[in-house]
Design a protein around this nucleic acid. Sequence first.
DNA 1: CTGAAAGCGCTTACAG
DNA 2: CTGAAAGCGCTTACAG
Lengths: 350, 350
Amino acid sequence: MKKAPRAPDDALETPRRRPTINDIARLAGVSKKTVSRVINASPFVRSDTRDRIQAVIAELGYAPDPQARGLAYGRSFLIGLVYDNPNPQYVVNMQLGLLDGMKGSGFELVVHPCDRESPTFLEDLRAFIERQRLFGVVLTPSVSEDERAAKLMSDIGCAYVRVASVSLDTPEHMIETRDRLGGREAARHLAELGHTRIGFISGPASFRSSHERRSGFEEALNEHGLTLSRTYVAEGAYTFDSGVERGRELLAIEPRPTAIFAANDEMAAGVLQAARQAGLRIPEDLSVVGFDDFQIASRLWPALTTVRTPTREIGRLAVERLLGRDDDVRDPKNRLPSLVVRDSTAPLKG
Amino acid sequence: MKKAPRAPDDALETPRRRPTINDIARLAGVSKKTVSRVINASPFVRSDTRDRIQAVIAELGYAPDPQARGLAYGRSFLIGLVYDNPNPQYVVNMQLGLLDGMKGSGFELVVHPCDRESPTFLEDLRAFIERQRLFGVVLTPSVSEDERAAKLMSDIGCAYVRVASVSLDTPEHMIETRDRLGGREAARHLAELGHTRIGFISGPASFRSSHERRSGFEEALNEHGLTLSRTYVAEGAYTFDSGVERGRELLAIEPRPTAIFAANDEMAAGVLQAARQAGLRIPEDLSVVGFDDFQIASRLWPALTTVRTPTREIGRLAVERLLGRDDDVRDPKNRLPSLVVRDSTAPLKG
DNA sequence: CTGAAAGCGCTTACAG
DNA sequence: CTGAAAGCGCTTACAG
C-alpha cells in the first residue's frame, strides 16, 4: 500500500518541521559552525557572511534549540529563582522583574521555593542546580543571606546573584536593596510630623533587612534630635500576628507612643488591629508606618503610610547582572526605597 | 613542565564528574540501552537485571541529564504555568501546588505570565512552548477560558490542562474548581443568618468564575425561599476600586441591603471601605462575604467571612493530570470551595 | 575568517 | 528480554 499523499498536512501550517542549524547552514552556503558563531555573537565572522546568515535566520524564523545548545555547552539556558520569602506579592513582583530582565535573551525562569530550616536544604538545592545544569540563580532574602548557599554556588560553579538589604558579597554577586534608606525615610516623616515618643517593631534578628531598617530609622531619628528609646522597641517576626502582639504591648506602655514604625506591612496591619482593639483612632491617636507597600497597604483602613521597595526593578537588575548585561547607565534612583504617604500618619496633636 | 598533581582537588568532593548513563552501564555490565529502559520504567527488563542496575544508580547517585534526555526524546522535561491572574496569592499558591505535584518527577516549573489582550499573545505563547519544547502546560483563569489558547496547544501537540470554574474541555484536559458550590455556600450562610435583602457584586462578565459564583449564589438563595433582586446586583471588575464603587452604590439604595456577597476578596475589601465611609458598622449594620480567602481576608477589620478555594490542592491535581499520575482515589472533598466564617457576618438584627 | 570531526548524554527504531 | 547503530541539534577543540 502506498503512503497516503500528505497534501492536507502541508496545507495546514502546523506540522512544518522547525528549522535547525543545518537548514540555515545549507541555505546560507556555509558550515554550521559558522552559523553557530553568528548565534553566539562571535566576532570572527566576516560581516557580509554574518548578514547573509542573519537574513536566512530571519526568513525561516529560526531559533536555536536551547536543549541541544545546553547539552553541548554543558549548561542549560535556565535561570533559577531560589527564595524563601513567604510574601506572595514579593515573590510575584520578583518573578516579573526577572522575566523583564531576561526578555528576548532566550533564557527561561525556573522557580525554586525552599526552606532554609529543612535538614536537606543544601542537598536539595545542589541536586536542583546540578540536575538542571542551571546557568545561574538569583537568591533572595533570606536565603540570599545564607553563606552556605553562596558557598555552594561557588563550589559547583553556578553563577549567582544575591539580592539583600546590604552588601554581603563581591559586587558582581550582589544587588543591594538598601533598606537602611527606607528606615531613614520613615524616621524623617515621623519627625517632621512632630512625633517624639516613637515605637519600633523590628523583624526577626536573623534577617539583615530587619537590622538595616532599624538602624536607618534610628540614625535618622538621631539626626532630627530624637532618640529611639529601648522601652519602645520590640522584636516581631515579620508576621501579622506578631504585629498584633507587639503592637498591643507597646500601646500598653505609659506614656503611650504616639507613632509606631513597623518593619513591614504585615506587622503594621497587626498594629492597626491592636490599636483598634485598644480603642485608639488612627491617625488621630496613633500614627503608623509600614514597610514594603504590598497590596495590603492600600486595602487597610486607614490606608497605610509605608516605604515602597521597587522589587520588580530590583529583580530586573539582578538578572541583568547575572547575564552580564547591566548598563549601569540607568538612573539609580528608581531602585531605592521611597516613602508613600497615605492616611495612617498625621501631625502630632498639639 | 609537568602537570601539577591534583590530589588537593580529589580531596574536595566538588569537582567529581557527574556519572552518566555510560558509567552505570559499565558498572552494571549491561548496555546503556538497558539502563535507559530502567530509567524509563520499561517492563522489558528482567527483574534481577533491573535490581542490579538500580543498585548501581543508587550507589553513584545517578540522575539522567534532562537536557540530553529531552534532546533525544524531542521534548523537554519542563512544565509551563501560563497565567494572567493578577492576584499574587493565587499565583504563588498555584505554583506551590504544581511543585507539590511534580516533586520527585524530574520535571521543573517554568513560569509564563501573559496578557490575553496583547496583539502578540498567541504568537508569544507559541514561541515560548515551541522553543523550549515544553512537555506540557497548565493554564489558569482567565487564559484557561480562552479557546484560542487551548486550540494552539492541540495544534502544536503540547499537553495541557485547563484549570477553570467549570468544564470547558474533555476530562483529561480539565480541572474544575466548581466555584458554583462556593456561591451556594455564601447564600446558605446569609440565608441562615436571616438576611433577605441581599446584594451581590459580580466580577466582569468575561470571567466564567464570576458567572458561576453568581448562579450558585442565586440558586441556593432560591432554595431557601429568597430571591436575588436585580436592584441589588451590580457588576464589578474583581478589583478593590470597583468594590468600593459598587459597594457605595448598593448601600445608597433604599431600602438598603443588609448583606452583600462580593465575588472576590478584593471587592469585599472595597465594600468594607464603602460601608465605613457610609458610617455603617460591620457586621451590625451590614454583613459582607467575599470569595478566595486570600491573605487580605484575615487582615481586614473586621476579618472577612469568605469562601476558600483550595488553590494549592487544585494546582497539584492539575500537574498530576498532566503527568497522567492522578490517583482519583483521594477524597475529592478537599478540592471543593468551603466557607470560612469570620467577623464580617452576623445574624440579621431583629 | 572558516570548516570537518568528534562529542555532549540520552533515546528511537531495528535486530536478535 | 537485551544490544549495536544512528541520531537528536548544537558546541568545543583543533586545523587551516
